[in-house]
Structure formats: structure tokens, C-alpha cells
Amino acid sequence: MPDSLLNDTPPPGPPPALALRGLAKTFGPKVAVNGINLDVPAGSFYGLVGPNGAGKTTSLSMATGLLRPDAGAVWVHGINVWEQPLEAKRLMGILPDGVRLFDRLSGEQLVTYAGLLRGMDRDTVAERVADLLATLDLAKDAGTLVVDYSAGMTKKIALASALIHAPRLLVLDEPFESVDPISAANIRDILDGYVASGGTVIVSSHVMDLVQRMCDHVAVIAAGNVLAAGTVDEVRSGESLEDRFVALVGGRNHSTGLQWLRTS
């Protein structure tokens, strides 16, 4: 393990989009994240995969300044998230999972709110809100209250709120959950364009297929530890990502299964 992974200093050279060092969090007796190290290169499309309860959401919350870590440090483009939070948060767009929205606002109001909260001027906000709503196919429901949106529409409006300030790093926790295939394809196009123009995207997911197709880098997290990290080809080493994931994480059930469920 290189020295830079052991102490709490940012790695040398051009700073990665996101660097985690020794990040740890325990909730009571449960170790949620066990001192993980991770480098997300600038301009990469990075997938974070792991079984339920692996610590993905906790890690991403700590990386984005939403949850204070017990130990460890996070840098976004070389800026320490927990020492200079305002500067770091300006560079990040975040789509948290399992978090409510201000859902008594209309979709348009919510995205406007997200822009104004970040101190953007009103005209820029209005222009970008219109663009985002049109691109995400929400224009005709822009005036509807978010509480009346479907699950997929809610995801999309949250994504719009994360994009409004043109961040350099996008952190998306389960962005495709309950999103219909057409909207998912639209979102993938937006993200691909964003990465092509130099942005960095981190997505967490447990849909391996999606990650294998979409991402160029991947990290496998289980039980609060990083089991493997690197380019998708390195990590899967010839197998499909799904098979490799199952081999790494383990826990497949090889019994003969529910005999009585067989119809013949």
C-alpha cells in the first residue's frame, strides 16, 4: 500500500476528483464504514457497487459533507470537505438516496430553490431550470407539487436540483431506482455528455449490468470495506462484473432451493 494511503494527507500529483482516506463510521455497535481509501480520477465515470447495507450510502454521505466521519478525510479536487466545506460543496452536486425533498414546492420551485440556495443569480437560475426541466421531460409537470410526482419523476427532479449549479463532481446515490427505461436512457445521455466534457460522476447501484455498461471505473464495497477498485476491466478480470461481484462478496445460496415451488 503506498504511503499516501496511510496518512491523512492528500495524494501527490494532480488531485483526483474525490479522494477518501481512512474514512470510518460506526453507529452504536455496528461498523458501517471500516476505514476505506478510494481515489476517483477526474473525468471518470465511477461505479460504486455493493450489497444492501454495505456502507455505500454512509460512505457517500461522509464524502459529500452530509455525515461527519468518525475518522479519516475527504478531498474534492484537492479541497478538504470537512475543513473547507463551503468551497468543497460548491464543486459537488449530490443526489442523496432515501432523503425527502421539500415536496410541497412545485418541481420548478424546488429546482429554483436549489439554485438560489447556492447563491446563483435569479436569471441564470431561471434559464437553467427551464433547460433542465425540458431535458428531463418534466416541463409539462413543472407546476405540479413534487409530493404528487411519481417515484421516477421525484428522482429526476432531485437530479435536476443536483445539476443546477454546474458542479465538477456529481455524486449520485441510486440514481436509476424506479426511473423508467426511457428516462434512464435520457439521464445516461446527460451523464455521458457531462463526463465527456470533463466532469466526474460517481454512481452507486446494485444493478451490475448497468454499471458494467455505463462506468469506466468501479469499486466493490461490502461490509464497510473496499474489496476491489480500479477500471471496470481490471476489476472484472475477464468475467462479467456480476459474477466477479458475487465471487468477491460471497453469500450465494447453493442449496437446492424451494422444492415445493417447482410446478413439475
Binding site: G65, K89, V99, L117, R118
Partner: peptide, 13 residues
Amino acid sequence: DNTAFALHVSSGV
């Protein structure tokens, strides 16, 4: 606000 408050934290207001 409940967890909708996350928007305030993430936007660094």
C-alpha cells in the same frame, strides 16, 4: 424539514 434539510446541508447555505 425532516431529511429534506439535506438540501440545505449539501448546498452549503
